[in-house]
Nucleic acid binder design. Structure first.
Length: 787
DNA sequence: GCCGTATTCCTACCG
DNA sequence: ACCGGTAGGAATACGGCG
């Protein structure tokens, strides 16, 4: 039969009668759900030999022990590289994946063996790496059709007869997407799956069908069973939720277990389970938690589903039913309010589906680029994403993957930040080095495999020596990082060029745009990865040399700017802010390219820009009239909306109307509004993240007080959660007067605190440059006048 | 024990 | 479970004081 084309959605492995098999789940080019089983691939690991070891002797040693390692299928001596150095290794193939870890540690002790490597790479991952298979991509496989003896919920089941070959195609098949959300009920505090039922499950699919399952009384058996049936009937390829990996799925799994219901929502007749990086795996489908992608949206500070949906504009804010988490259960209990709760639940699922429409292209491109399955890639932290990409690239060039070992942490010096020139500057251009760190690594061949230790002899081709820190890197051959990063940068430039030729409305543009973003995130995170002690390829001098060259570059650039007759107003890491003088800038750019060896490009123009004494904080007016506010309170999530609105208003008046007195009047008016309670309650909430368990805090802090109150009332609080609190009137320390916003009323608030500790400091940050002080900002109210 | 100041803790930002 | 550099608020420690 002709080869089958498959777009890879999910992969898993099974061991049947002691024999391993890989299962590739996806869609064929006719849109049929397809499973391809590959039984031809054996798991393996490597034994790294001592420099003076004789491979044949080691093989003999291994043979002597064969009664204790009967599962060894094959042994091969192979040439590889380890940190760039040629090494001999023995590749030990095993009958099944369960033997790999066991055999690796026992054979690691054989004399002549220095270490065991790559035994920590899982069997299904091993398959993806070795076969060069890309998740969310097309492949061609020679197959034979077989009976569906594994009871897979697919239209076609095949047995692979060849290695899958990548087919270059940017097309995405038409996938079925199901969004779901749940409401659980508890009399008090957070619902607990041991006792509290799931009262509503809502689902919305991308064929626009909607379903809602509602508990009768407090019995959720029917809710769960109906949901399972619905998933089976709709048969989604992708299931999306918001917070689903940490909340919905674990809750569902526990409820189902308690009620003795089999949670059969996958395509292989088994139940969902928590897997790598804490994601929940649903075999044959891709289960995606959109909260993972929301993490990357810096503009949204409190990342609730509602806020993310608003930011992305996927649902109409005005039309939405708003219910505080704390009120959910009372809405359920109240017959009159229950319809509102049902609406709320359905709208949540609609928001989730809406967010998935925007997010999935990026998720798929990231999965395809990095090589992690779609359901893994979102859950994996940035460091692991970079690492996985490196692992796949390492395999291509025969570089062994180092083990993850614990290393001591020593801090090292980072980037240079210039002192700003305070005040207003009329016309300023920001020039920055594009992808500075990756380009520095490429230019100087900085890489774990090119590093030359202090006492090592210098290689023939010579070395690049980092300024200040004096770390050395061989010039030849091109290192691992150089190869990987040049490819990424090249790929990104090619995509950018293609994008320019496409109309922004075309579907190809959407996909390529997502691809560009995926490539950018990996390239930008590569320096951070290099400096991460937990990284497999961590070599401190690599990170240390990169920042040293970076400091050198910006310092040299500042010199050149001055020599070109340009006034440098500010700079941070890879940028310089200079006054806009076209002729001088042109010369300056050329000088930088010539002398620094890195390209610098004009980015933004501000007319004008305002600096205080502080670094990393400024506000500028862009040519189109928009304000660009960096680092200041407006850009932060731990100040009240009221303070931020005042500061933004002040900045706007200062930059556009150039009147500090008008700005002061604006502040006066706002404070008067506050005192007459015209400022909305929600603008007075302070949001702060709980960064560790409550007990571990060494000092009292307002948000911890509020968290303790919630905890007393039965609300489970985990690190990472945002606590919204307000300050109440009364005596004592601030932390004694902090309370959860949902448990407090407007009348209890300490408005003086909001005036003195929020609004005035935020406004003064800007206005103190113009000689205004605290007293100037306080409105003269009636009481003062009578005095 | 009180008061003003220095230090530490804590969070969130920039690039 | 990605880096170091930075700002700034609040809590707490500290030093002086008959």
């Amino acid at each position: 039969m002709p080869p089958v084309k498959i777009w890879l959605l999910d992969i898993n492995d099974e061991v049947i009668d002691g024999k391993p098999e890989i299962r590739l789940w996806g869609l064929d080019d006719k849109g049929r759900r397809t499973l391809i089983i590959d039984r031809s691939f054996l798991p393996y690991f490597y034994l790294l030999l001592e420099d003076d070891a004789i491979p044949e002797k080691v093989l003999k040693e291994i043979d002597v022990r064969k009664t204790s390692t009967p599962g060894i299928v094959a042994l091969h001596v192979v040439d590889k590289k380890y940190f760039g150095k040629p090494v001999r290794v023995i590749r030990v193939a095993c009958r099944n994946p369960t033997l790999v870890t066991k055999y690796a540690s026992s054979l690691g002790r054989v004399s002549g063996v220095r270490d065991h490597l790559e035994d920590d790479i899982r069997y299904s991952s091993r398959y993806l790496i070795d076969k060069g298979i890309n998740p969310c991509g097309w492949h061609k496989v020679e197959v034979e059709e077989v009976e569906n003896e594994v009871d897979a919920e697919v239209e076609k089941v095949y047995l692979a007869k060849s290695t899958p070959r990548v087919v270059d195609s940017a097309e995405t098949p038409r996938l079925r997407v199901l969004a779901f959300s749940m409401v659980c009920h508890s009399a008090k505090g957070s619902p607990k799956p041991e006792k509290d039922p799931i009262v509503i499950i809502s689902s919305v699919a991308n064929d626009r069908s909607q379903q809602q399952f509602i508990a009768e009384d407090h019995d959720d058996r029917h809710v769960i069973e109906s949901f399972i049936k619905h998933v089976q009937d709709f048969d989604p390829d992708i299931i999306v939720g918001y917070g689903s990996n940490k909340q919905d799925w674990p809750y569902l799994i526990e409820r189902a277990k308690r009620l003795g219901i089999k949670l059969l929502v996958d395509r292989s007749g088994s139940e969902p389970h928590t897997s790598l990086y804490g994601h929940v795996s649903v075999t044959g489908r891709s289960n995606i938690d959109l909260a993972d992608y929301a993490e990357e949206i810096r503009e949204v500070k409190v990342k609730t589903l509602e806020n993310i949906a608003d930011y992305l504009g996927v649902t109409k804010k005005e039309k939405r039913t708003k219910i505080e988490e704390i009120d959910l259960s009372s809405f359920w209990e109240d017959e009159e309010k229950r319809p509102a709760l049902q609406r709320y639940a359905m709208e949540n699922s609609q928001s989730i589906l809406g967010i998935s429409n925007i997010t999935l292209d990026f998720a798929m491109q990231l999965s395809n680029l990095i090589g992690l399955p779609l359901d893994h890639v979102g859950a994996a932290a940035v460091g692991f994403r970079v690492e996985w990409y490196l692992i796949r690239r390492a395999h291509e060039i025969g570089e062994l993957v180092p083990k993850r070992t614990e290393k001591p942490y020593f801090p090292y010096k980072g980037a240079t930040v210039l002192k700003p020139k305070p005040g207003i500057h009329e016309k300023v251009v920001v020039l920055d080095f594009s992808s500075m760190y990756p380009n520095i690594m490429i230019a100087n061949n900085i890489s774990p495999d090119t590093y030359v230790k202090p006492h090592e002899p210098e290689p023939l081709g010579g070395v690049n020596t980092a300024p200040e820190v004096k770390h050395k890197f061989r010039k030849e051959p091109p290192g691992f990082y150089k190869q990987v990063l040049s490819d990424l940068i090249k790929a990104r430039n090619e995509i950018k060029a293609k994008l320019k030729r496409l109309s922004p409305e075309s579907p190809q543009h959407k996909v390529l745009n997502a691809r560009e973003l995926a490539v950018k995130t990996v390239a930008n995170a590569s320096y951070g990865y290099a400096g991460w002690v937990g990284a497999r390829w961590y070599i401190r001098p690599v990170a240390e040399a990169t920042t040293a060259w970076g400091r050198h570059a910006i310092e040299h650039t500042v010199d050149l700017a001055k020599k070109s007759g340009l006034n440098v107003i500010y700079g941070d890491t890879d940028s310089v802010f200079v006054e806009y003088k076209a002729e001088e800038i042109k010369k300056f750019l050329e000088a930088v390219k010539e002398e620094v060896g890195l390209e610098i490009k004009p980015d933004k123009v501000y007319e004008p820009v305002l600096f205080t004494e502080a670094k990393k904080r400024y506000a500028g007016l862009l040519p189109d009239g928009r304000l660009d506010i960096v680092g200041l309170e407006v850009a932060r999530g731990d100040w009240t909306e009221s303070a931020k609105k005042v500061q933004e208003g002040v900045i706007e008046i200062i930059l556009k109307e150039r009147s500090a007195d008008d700005a002061v009047k604006f502040v006066h008016q706002y404070i008067k509004n506050l005192k007459s309670k015209k400022v909305p309650y929600s603008d007075l909430i302070i949001w702060k993240t709980l960064t560790k368990p409550i007990e571990e805090y060494k000092v009292n802090a307002p948000h911890v007080t509020a968290a303790k109150t919630l905890k007393r009332l039965g609300w489970a609080l985990v690190p990472g959660e945002k606590i919204g609190y307000v300050i109440e009137a009364g005596g004592g320390k601030l932390y004694e007067r902090a309370a959860p916003y949902s448990l407090t009323t407007y009348d209890q608030l300490d408005l003086k605190y909001y005036e003195e500790n929020q609004i005035i400091p935020a406004a003064l940050r800007i206005l103190s440059i113009f000689g205004k002080n605290k007293e100037d900002l306080k409105p003269e109210d009636a009481t003062q006048r009578t005095l």
